[in-house]
């Protein structure tokens, strides 16, 4: 029994290259802006993470449409598992070029795991290598972006002290992974549309920004945490309304069920 996807190529919407460009450029620019601007602007890291989340969700959508044989969540967890290793490696040796090194290492690890899945395990998904590399890079950028929100910079010592040693990394792991795996997992099916799935990714990324913004109050102070959370809430409201609009567009009919009937009405 194959869970997740109908077993074919994902169709429609923006081409993969556009989304990939958005993810890489948006992600890296956000991370660097969050690093170089004063602490109050650390929300740029979160915006970079949202771009990367959208990219990751689109890559999951393309690869999971073929049917993975197991649930869609597995690939999101894989993305963050590869991402955590690549991102810390990049920061540890890269200095200012850390995020770029991290993305390159993530692409290598993802490409190798994708090739193993296709060649050794024999999954036979044509885009597996590329998609796995993309998912891994997106996971790396999500972790880096959210770390910048909490630590205010991507300096290795700062990330280790404020994100890893404090345990917030576990939080980033789950909410970042949720942003990548949940959109397609929630929207999959014959009526799946790319714009609806990706808007859900934006919404999940905004929730991640709100939560990491709250966590950033420990190190960056209440003012910065407040700005992070307000920007996160604003993006969330816009994205959620947009998502609801798309649901109403794609659904056959949206009806209100009313309140539960009272005991008298049931008799």
């Amino acid at each position: 029994m194959s869970a997740g996807g109908s077993g074919g190529e994902a169709k429609g919407g923006y081409p993969p290259q556009t989304i990939m460009g958005l993810g890489i450029v948006g992600g890296l620019v956000g991370i660097y802006l969050g690093h170089f601007m004063p602490p109050a602007y650390s929300f740029f890291g979160g915006i970079g993470a949202i771009c990367a989340t959208v990219w990751g969700a689109d890559a999951v959508r393309r690869v999971a449409s073929y049917g993975l044989g197991t649930g869609v969540p597995s690939i999101g967890m894989l993305a963050l598992g590869m991402g955590i290793i690549a991102s810390l490696f990049g920061l540890s040796i890269g200095g200012l070029g850390g995020p770029v090194v991290a993305v390159i290492v993530a692409a290598i690890i993802g490409g190798v795991i994708g090739a193993l899945a296709n060649k050794v395990i024999g999954m036979g998904i044509p885009i597996m290598e590329q998609a796995m590399a993309e998912i891994s890079c997106a996971g790396t950028l999500v972790i880096l972006g959210l770390s910048v929100v909490i630590a205010g910079s991507f300096d290795y010592a700062a990330v280790i002290e404020y994100v890893i040693a404090s345990g917030y990394i576990a939080l980033i792991f789950i909410i970042g992974g949720m942003g990548i795996l949940h959109p397609f997992n929630a929207c999959l099916g014959p009526d799946e549309k790319q714009d609806r799935t990706l808007v859900l990714a934006v919404e999940k990324g905004a929730i991640a920004l709100i939560i990491t913004g709250f966590a950033s109050s420990l190190h960056e102070g209440l003012m910065t945490a407040g700005i992070n959370m307000i920007i996160g809430i604003a993006i969330w409201l816009v994205a959620f309304n947009r998502y609801y609009t798309y649901i109403k567009r794609d659904a056959y009919k949206v009806v209100g069920t009313g309140l539960l009937p009272s005991a008298e009405e049931l008799q």
Partner: peptide, 12 residues
């Protein structure tokens, strides 16, 4: 966190 990352890769 590295052990968790390696664990998840090897579980998937």
């Amino acid at each position: 966190i590295f052990a968790i990352g390696i664990f998840l890769v090897n579980a998937v």
